[in-house]
Amino acid sequence: MYAFSYHKPATAQEAADLMASADEGAYLAGGMTLVPTLKQRLAAPSDVIDLTGIHGLRGIRTLDGKVKVGATTRHAEVAANEHIPVLADLAGRIGDPHVRNCGTLGGSVANSDPAADYPAAVVALDATVHTNKRAIAGDEFFKGLFETALEDGEIVTAVDFRAPSAAAYAKFPNPASRYAVVGVLVARYGDQVRVGVTGAGPCAFRAANIEAALAADFRPGAVDDVGIDYGDFNADLHASAEYRGHLVRVLAKRAVAQIGSADSG
């Protein structure tokens, strides 16, 4: 780790001011990505600005069928919350207990790691990402590999998720890191279906063709003939792009089956 100045501001404005005046600032939330990067000397920020001292960023509230999760809320807290079961299930499968007690929703979303779990929920659960400046639709938030709609210095303050009528998250964990090789979140809102995919592409996305097929026929078999274009999918030691494409279909079917069995049960 290189030396840096550490700050723990009490307000988002103070944090943004610190970032604006830093040579090379970095926001720190749970530190699950930043701290290992610092330890390996792969990043050398002049100033690390800890967001966990900002009042009002942590906690879960419900409002008009939506659940608002503060940006510094820990994964373990979301996992223990009953308002949106699929979100709790997803959060409870991130990393390991250490990660879940340190990692934050805001940190995960703002980082747009292609293998993170939360982004699947942001796109599938019709979310709104709130920042210190504005509100951004979940569908518009992820722009690419580690790229989001956030401007320089902009701070995620909370994410609103719309509670679905039924939903399930199917995840194929990386055997080494337990990140998502592919994760598919299928959510029903009455007749509407939203499908969020993480792990497969450069960033999380909605699978419009799977959504269309399921809107017409909400059964696992409906996904069988949906074409998955894996041309720009990720490839690494653990999974080729083609295999990831295959997993998107398999996991979508499993999520649908899980919803189906829950409905019938």
Partner: peptide, 23 residues
């Protein structure tokens, strides 16, 4: 089933951390 020390064709170790080497 899990473990594999892998170098790429230039001799860089691809499985050089617990993110990629499956214990």
């Amino acid at each position: 089933l899990l473990e594999h020390g892998v170098y790429d064709e230039t001799g860089q170790l691809l499985s050089g951390s617990y993110m990629d080497y499956t214990m």
